[in-house]
C-alpha cells in the first residue's frame, strides 16, 4: 500500500479509520446493553440524531432542489446522499405496487469492513445506524418514513437490503430532535 504522491484530501477520512471507529462503538453498545434488540434500537436512535443534522450538510453541498415524488426522493437518496456520505451508491429495487415502498440494495457497505457477527449475536443489526440516518434526514424534508433491515450479508443473507416505506407527508416543519 503506497500512498506516496497522492494528493492529500482533507475532506476525506480513511475507510479503515471509519469502520474501526464504528466497530468500537458497536462493541461498546453490545457490552452496555443486554439484548441485541436494545443495541439495534440505540443504533437507530444515534442514526436519527445524525440524520437530522446531516441534512443541512447535504443541502449545503449538493444544491439539491425539491423532490416532486417519492421515486425521485429515492433516486436522490441513493445517487446523491449515499454517494456523498458513504461513497457508495445502493441500487433501488423492489418497488411496491402502490409506489410507497422500495428497497435499497447495498453491494458495498463501508461500515462492515473487518466485521463478522459472532454466533451469540445473530440478532444484531450491525449497520442499523443507517436506518436511523435515513429516517432522520427524510423527516427533515417532511417525509415520514419507516426504515428497516430486510436482510444483511453479515447474517448470512445473499445481499444487504434496507426497506424504506413512505408513511406520510409532514405538513409543519418539525423541530429538530434534541435527544
Amino acid at each position: 500500500m503506497s500512498r506516496q504522491g497522492r494528493p492529500q484530501d482533507t475532506r476525506k477520512v480513511s475507510g479503515e479509520l471509519f469502520s474501526l471507529t464504528y466497530g468500537a462503538l458497536v462493541a461498546q453498545l453490545v457490552r452496555d446493553y443486554e439484548k441485541d434488540e436494545e443495541v439495534n434500537q440505540q443504533l437507530d436512535k444515534m442514526g436519527y440524531n445524525i440524520g437530522v443534522r446531516l441534512i443541512e450538510d447535504f443541502f449545503a453541498r449538493s444544491q439539491q432542489g425539491r423532490c416532486h415524488d417519492f421515486a425521485q426522493a429515492a433516486d436522490v437518496l441513493t445517487k446523491v446522499g449515499f454517494k456523498m456520505f458513504l461513497g457508495v451508491v445502493p441500487t433501488v429495487a423492489n418497488w411496491s405496487a402502490k409506489g410507497d415502498e422500495f428497497s435499497l440494495i447495498l453491494d458495498q457497505n463501508p461500515l462492515v469492513d473487518f466485521v463478522e457477527l459472532p454466533e451469540t449475536h445473530q440478532g444484531l443489526l450491525y449497520s442499523n445506524i443507517i436506518c436511523g440516518v435515513i429516517r432522520g434526514a427524510l423527516e427533515m424534508v417532511q417525509l415520514e418514513v419507516k426504515v428497516w433491515f430486510v436482510q444483511d450479508q453479515l447474517r448470512g443473507s445473499d445481499s444487504t437490503e434496507i426497506r424504506v416505506k413512505f408513511l406520510k407527508k409532514l405538513e409543519d416543519a418539525v423541530p429538530a430532535g434534541e435527544d
Binding site: K12, S14, E16, F18, T21, N49, L54, F85, L86, D158
Partner: peptide
C-alpha cells in the same frame, strides 16, 4: 456466506474513503 472473514481478500479495501462529515457526525455521537 458461511465463509469466514479471514477468507476474504484484504488488500483492495485500503482504498475506500469516507466523507469527513460522516466521520465527524459519527464521532460526535
Amino acid at each position: 456466506a458461511a465463509e469466514t472473514l479471514y477468507d476474504k481478500p484484504l488488500s483492495s479495501k485500503g482504498k475506500l474513503e469516507v466523507n469527513l462529515s460522516t466521520y465527524a457526525f459519527l464521532f460526535s455521537e
